[in-house]
Write a protein that binds this DNA or RNA. Structure first.
Lengths: 257, 257
DNA sequence: AGAATAGTGTCTTTGAGACAATATCAA
DNA sequence: TTGATATTGTCTCAAAGACACTATTCT
């Protein structure tokens, strides 16, 4: 920064117009599972959902919006996003990631307000209490398709679209799928989670590729019990399926080899 | 945002402390080429450099810092970054990308100032005029190694480190290498540019991989003249090398296949 | 047996990896 | 002829892609 005053004594930032606020807005994603009503064991039906709140005040009173709040001078914006997420969902220590800033003039009728957008990935299990409590309130989960069809407050439609693009990209290039899965999961669960976030995803020989540890450098590994026997699950099928877990390995991608 | 007032008439944002500024800071990268002093034609020596300015005023007077400036309420932060880049280097229409926000309390002695960090990739050719003019001034290019060893103003050391990590990742996962190359280039030029940004990069059979259009889905293509003959260059070698250009194809990466 | 998921067998083609060998051509 | 860069040849082994086939177990 090469602007403004020459020394501390005469420095006043108020010579310039300053912003009226720097909020954090959070796109909270979760994947819900609902049993399919068949007699036999089967994979659940999964949907990508997003949490919205209904505004009580001007501006955009009555319209649905992303949860968020103004950040304070005593915290970083990242901290303020985590605080807001905790207030809204009661959960802590979940994956939360900053992805863009929104600052188009006029985006907020209240003034010059620069919004910092985060997305959070929350396992359905963490939201269960909250969902029961707020069932008929002004906080609700919507499927992303619904949410995108709604007339959201501010530029939140754009923010939601951008967030969706982000998590789709990151779903395929990082291991964030684990945020939507239990510690130990089957290959079909993983496949289903990826497809829920990225509908276009399709791999015929998924199990072959994901378990050919040579190329994927072991981002997942088989779970074994104390005796070294493979640990299986028959949660979703008669035939037991091998359980896997994510390793700590971070995938390195490159277009040049 | 679910905070504050109930209607327009009684809304005053000044009930809360508001930020003292929302600047954009820009990490401007370029790659310089210097001839190696051999008699025969040879590849130049390339270095990744970053543009810094020396501060004239409090705070951090006399220290080197990233170029940047406060954004105005009449422009988005992205626009303010482009304006600042134009003012500092005279160039327009170059690759500029937002990558993070810096808002730790106390990061700026002037008050509550939230910095938005961009990186820009500028082809050496665009900087030539500017460099001559400002040779002995308070604006200079440093190699990234130098810059990282310096005691930079504010949290600019951290911002620089983050920017470097970003462009390294993006150099391998996107086609930003083209920002440092002429329209038409040889495979060795491309290889050298990648290695300049990512020293650890090494591919034995680079030419085989990059030209096996099956796997890389054609991110580059051979240049041909009107008659359909392959267009060659002997800029760097006695033996002419095939020229390539980037296509418009955007690489799609996935860890799952 | 049928339903629903979980895997394996087999074949073909393509690519990765290593590294030696050859091509070009001005000085 | 040499030096410097730019390729190609030739192996081997791993992986991608397709898709039919087998396995498990509850109802």
């Amino acid at each position: 920064m090469s602007e403004s005053a020459t020394n501390e004594s005469n420095y006043t930032s108020s010579r310039y117009r300053t912003p009226d606020g720097a909020p954090a807005d959070i796109v909270i994603f979760t994947i819900t599972s609902t049993e399919r009503g068949t007699a036999k064991k089967s994979l659940p039906y999964r949907e990508l959902q997003v949490l919205l709140i209904q505004r009580k005040n001007w501006p955009f009173e009555g319209q649905w919006a992303l949860p968020g709040g103004f950040s304070k001078e005593t915290e970083s914006i990242h901290e303020s996003a985590k605080r807001e997420l905790q207030e809204e969902t009661g959960v802590e220590n979940v994956h939360i990631e900053y992805f863009n800033v929104y600052s188009a003039p006029g985006r907020d009728p209240r003034g010059w307000i620069i919004s910092h957008a985060f997305f959070a990935l929350v396992n359905e299990a963490h939201l269960i209490n909250r969902k029961a409590a707020d069932d008929a309130s002004d906080v609700r989960l919507f499927t992303v398709e619904e949410a995108l069809r709604m007339n959201l407050a501010f530029d939140h439609h754009q923010i939601l679209r951008d967030a969706l693009e982000q998590i789709r990209r990151r779903m395929l290039t990082t291991t964030i799928a684990k945020e939507f899965l239990p510690e130990e999961f089957t290959i079909s669960e993983l496949y289903q989670v990826i497809q829920t976030v990225v509908p276009a995803f399709e791999e015929r020989n998924f199990i072959r590729k994901i378990t050919s540890t040579q190329s994927r450098k072991g981002i997942i590994e088989e779970v074994r019990d104390r005796r070294g026997e493979p640990k299986m699950s028959n949660k979703y099928s008669q035939r037991a399926a091998q359980l896997y877990r994510f390793t700590d390995a971070e995938p390195q991608l490159s277009i040049y080899g």
